[in-house]
């Protein structure tokens, strides 16, 4: 059964998909969401809305999804297992589906230690793998985790994330295979800076034939400066920024670093497009959403298929 998801349609039609993301504001002003959304309008097939990313309190993902939906976007509601037990998770899934959200991205969630409420209790009643199973059970079987029937079943296109660069590397493709087995239909990867390693991972993914089961969208993040590159390398766990990339940014004069960052980003897009099994890109322009149109245009990915 196909959902109302534009992303699903684009992928199923064999188009190279482009998604991006929108981090909701740390406040109740809907204009903040609309402002970010305005940059992306017409340039992406779907927009992810993060769920209290890095464990910092923000406007709820579902609410921001609805604001974006009212602007004509196809939102991807990210959902983490950190803050909700299986009761709240299933309830939010029903609510999201009822309000017209067609995509969900299942995540474990960053540990609260890194956020603004490090003394909070975490939940992790289920993990991301089990969340995928949970959504698919609700969608496909029309049943809650308890086994009871859902009256008015939700219909969602189910995604997950995977980090090809985290350790242990040898099981990272297997882990995606597990997520595919659990029912994931698309995956958005961690930011790809190390294209070579990403290529190796894709090779392992193809060996397991996982690329035939899930649509793979490579994560793309443009770097604004050498400072950002270094921060990503040293302070963000699970991020792989090769030294030669840092060197390249370092050798660029400060005022030209942003430009160079975009150039690197476009080269990365070009390279991942050439990798067999990659079905699209997911652009995470962190606090730099205004660059997304230029990236999409320069990468030759504009215009997007009509919804």
């Amino acid at each position: 059964m196909s959902t109302g998801s534009n992303l699903e349609k684009v992928l199923k039609n064999g188009n190279f998909a482009v998604t991006s993301e929108c981090g909701p504001p740390r406040g109740a002003d809907p204009e903040a969401v609309k402002k970010k959304g305005a940059f992306l309008s017409g340039y992406v097939d779907a927009v992810n809305v993060t769920d209290n990313q890095t464990s910092v309190v923000r406007m709820s993902s579902l609410s921001a999804c609805l604001i974006l939906r009212s602007m004509g976007f196809d939102p991807v509601m990210q959902m983490v297992c950190r803050d909700r037990n299986r009761i709240a998770i299933q309830s939010d899934i029903l609510g999201a589906a009822a309000l017209g959200v067609s995509n969900i991205l299942c995540l474990s969630g960053d540990h609260q230690k890194f956020g603004d409420h490090p003394t909070a209790k975490n939940v992790f009643d289920i993990d991301s793998m089990q969340l995928i199973q949970c959504v698919r059970q609700m969608v496909d079987d029309g049943r809650f985790l308890s086994g009871e029937e859902i009256k008015g079943r939700p219909n969602l296109f189910v995604g997950c994330a995977e980090n090809p660069f985290a350790d242990p590397f040898e099981i990272r493709a297997m882990r995606l295979a597990k997520k595919a087995k659990a029912g994931a239909q698309f995956v958005q990867t961690q930011c790809v800076f190390n294209v070579e390693k990403f290529g190796k991972w894709m090779e392992m993914v193809r060996d397991l034939n996982v690329h035939e089961k899930v649509y793979i969208l490579a994560g793309i993040t443009p770097m604004k400066s050498v400072g950002m590159a270094k921060y990503m390398k040293n302070s963000v766990p699970g991020m792989d920024v090769p030294d030669d990339l840092i060197k390249r940014m370092q050798q660029t004069p400060k005022e030209k670093q942003a430009e160079e960052g975009i150039k690197i980003c476009l080269e990365t897009i070009e390279k991942v497009r050439g990798i067999k099994g990659v079905s699209g890109i997911h652009i995470m322009a962190i606090e730099w959403e205004q660059m997304v149109p230029e990236i999409v245009r320069s990468a030759g990915l504009y215009p997007r298929p009509q919804p």
């Binding site: 297992c81 950190r82 474990s108 969630g109 960053d110 540990h111 230690k113 975490n122 992790f124 993990d127 991301s128 793998m129 089990q130 994330a161 995977e162 980090n163 985290a166 350790d167 242990p168 099981i171 882990r175 597990k178 961690q190 766990p237 699970g238």
Partner: peptide, 29 residues
């Protein structure tokens, strides 16, 4: 596992260490 996850490791496992506490090995590693 800092997140008690049953199908790990999460994306924060690097060099065999948990992202939450560098003195703790990643359980899933």
């Amino acid at each position: 596992c800092a997140k008690s996850i049953f199908n790990g490791p999460c994306g924060g496992s690097q060099g065999g260490v948990c992202e939450v506490n560098k003195d703790a090995p990643c359980a899933w590693q």
